[in-house]
């Protein structure tokens, strides 16, 4: 499943970048964070409670910052599991100046869900995955106040 989006943020690129690679900041935007374990600047584990309504469960996700070119580009991959399912997430963020002193953030996410959720929840999977991922990025955007 592929998702992407673009935001304008009223903050300088460097500030935005610093937030995006800070595990503590990002994890606050994750749905119902249960636990965060920061191993290093590049690696952290988050336990989040995610799902749709009462169909939810805890997912343990190991994040790794695999590409970092401050303040323009970052790539974060996560692998984890929950509700008898495996989740692989690859997100890429590219920042550029929006001209008015703000930042243009282009994000892309590639999500792969396997196992129980994928095999019995096909009908709802992609719309719900989209919802969760979009919310995450909207939350990050909102940290800076919305742009235009």
């Amino acid at each position: 499943m592929h998702f992407d989006g673009t935001f304008s943020i009223r903050a300088p690129r460097k500030d935005v970048f610093d937030v995006l690679i800070d595990p503590k900041q990002i994890s606050r935007c994750m749905p119902d964070l249960q636990k965060l374990d920061v191993k290093s600047k590049e690696e952290f584990t988050a336990v989040v409670r995610a799902g749709v309504s009462f169909i939810k469960g805890d997912f343990t996700l190991n994040f790794r910052l695999v590409e970092s070119e401050p303040p323009t580009h970052a790539k974060l991959v996560a692998r984890g599991s929950g509700i008898g399912s495996a989740v692989d997430l690859e997100t890429t963020i590219d920042l550029s100046d929006s001209g008015d002193g703000g930042t243009l953030m282009k994000w892309q996410a590639e999500a792969k869900v396997g196992g129980r959720i994928a095999s019995v929840g096909q009908r709802l999977l992609s719309s719900q995955a989209q919802k969760i991922i979009t919310q995450l990025f909207e939350c990050l955007r909102d940290k800076f106040g919305t742009g235009s």
């Binding site: 792969k112 869900v113 396997g114 196992g115 994928a118 095999s119 019995v120 096909q122």
Partner: peptide
């Protein structure tokens, strides 16, 4: 199967 190789019809719902 979906593109990730997950069977879409693994219960009698589908």
């Amino acid at each position: 199967y979906d593109e990730d190789g997950q069977l879409k019809s693994s219960t009698l719902v589908d």
